[in-house]
């Protein structure tokens, strides 16, 4: 069954950063049993703030101490709780790498680490950019890593994770980006990519809000050049849906990955590994943050600067297709 996207809509704003809190709040009100740990960056005005206010006995603030927070989250899980732990983007993998590796993954604890502000979406420059996390997570056994496309998908993941065995990373990027899915009436399976749009000339493989830019690039390619560009929502980066990658590669012979992460070690690298080992002979290109500390500016401007938005993706596709 084809999913309904926002391909034909304009700017239905989605806020996954807000949505996770809203879903948790809702789940708490429904009586679902979980606890929440957080860093000193959850504003009282958010839905997560409301969760903290109305369910204080299950919410624990660890201040500005990510390793301590992640370690304690593992302890809370070992005590028999499902734990959602919110940490500000870059400080999750960079500060708490050992705790993610050892306390969460090796100890196999039911912790869902919610990294907000991923990629370059926080603003504030390289200290606040979360561009190396996937390179780390991909190499840690037991971890499942998901990056929701929009607020609706984020809520689905939060709820799905209640019954999911083992540790999980939920990578959330922007506050206020267009929805990718027109409704929530679709099946989301962890580890199973969703073919957002079918195509024959090329496939874009991406995740999170970058998918919307992929759709806009595909739209432009169709309108300007009559090209049929497919899109794969690779919402689960680990374990990667290798079958889906090979399927769309065989179908089109042209693959472009798009991600707000370093070009090293992220989705592009993961897809390249699958393609190479499968003997893929077609074309392949990675659109990602280059191997440099990023320029400073507004997120959209940074995306434009590095070509990680519709125009940059369109340019990559036209070059690949020889248009």
């Amino acid at each position: 069954m084809a999913v309904k996207t926002t391909y034909d809509f304009d700017m239905m704003l989605s806020n996954a950063r807000e949505a996770y809190g809203e879903e948790l709040y809702q789940m708490a009100k429904e009586g679902l049993d979980f606890v929440f740990t957080y860093s000193d960056n959850v504003a009282p005005s958010t839905k997560a703030g409301q969760l903290i206010k109305e369910f204080p006995e299950r919410c624990f603030n660890f201040g500005i101490a990510e390793p301590g927070q992640v370690g304690a989250s593992a302890g809370l899980a070992l005590a028999g709780n499902v734990v959602f732990a919110q940490v500000f983007g870059p400080f999750l993998p960079l500060r708490a790498a050992d705790q993610i590796h050892t306390d969460i993954a090796y100890n196999y604890t039911k912790v869902r680490l919610i990294g907000t502000h991923s990629g370059v979406t926080a603003g504030g420059g390289p200290t606040h950019n979360d561009i190396a996390d996937l390179a780390l997570y991909r190499a840690i056994p037991n971890l499942t890593v998901v990056a929701p496309a929009d607020a609706g998908q984020c809520c689905k993941f939060i709820r799905l994770s209640m019954d999911y065995d083992g540790p999980m990373i939920i990578r959330i990027n922007r506050a206020g980006s267009p929805n990718v899915y027109a409704d929530n009436d679709y099946e989301l399976v962890i580890g199973k990519a969703i073919e957002l749009m079918e195509g024959t000339d090329a496939y874009l493989i991406s995740f999170s809000s970058n998918l919307y830019e992929c759709m806009m690039a595909a739209k432009a390619m169709k309108e300007k050049h009559g090209c049929s560009i497919g899109i794969l929502d690779m919402h689960t980066i680990k374990p990667l849906d290798a079958e889906a990658v090979i399927r769309v590669a065989e179908k089109s012979g042209n693959i472009v990955t798009v991600e707000d992460h370093s070009i090293n070690g992220g989705l592009g690298g993961a897809v390249a590994e699958v393609l190479c080992e499968a003997g893929y002979k077609g074309k392949f290109k990675r659109v990602a943050m280059p191997d440099e500390f990023a320029v400073l500016g507004d997120t959209d401007d940074i995306y434009r600067y590095y070509g990680i938005e519709r125009l940059g993706i369109e340019k990559t596709l036209t070059e690949m297709l020889g248009i």
Partner: peptide, 10 residues
């Protein structure tokens, strides 16, 4: 010790 803190909270 951080894990123990979480354990006791839990």
């Amino acid at each position: 010790l951080p894990i123990a803190v979480g354990y006791a909270l839990g």
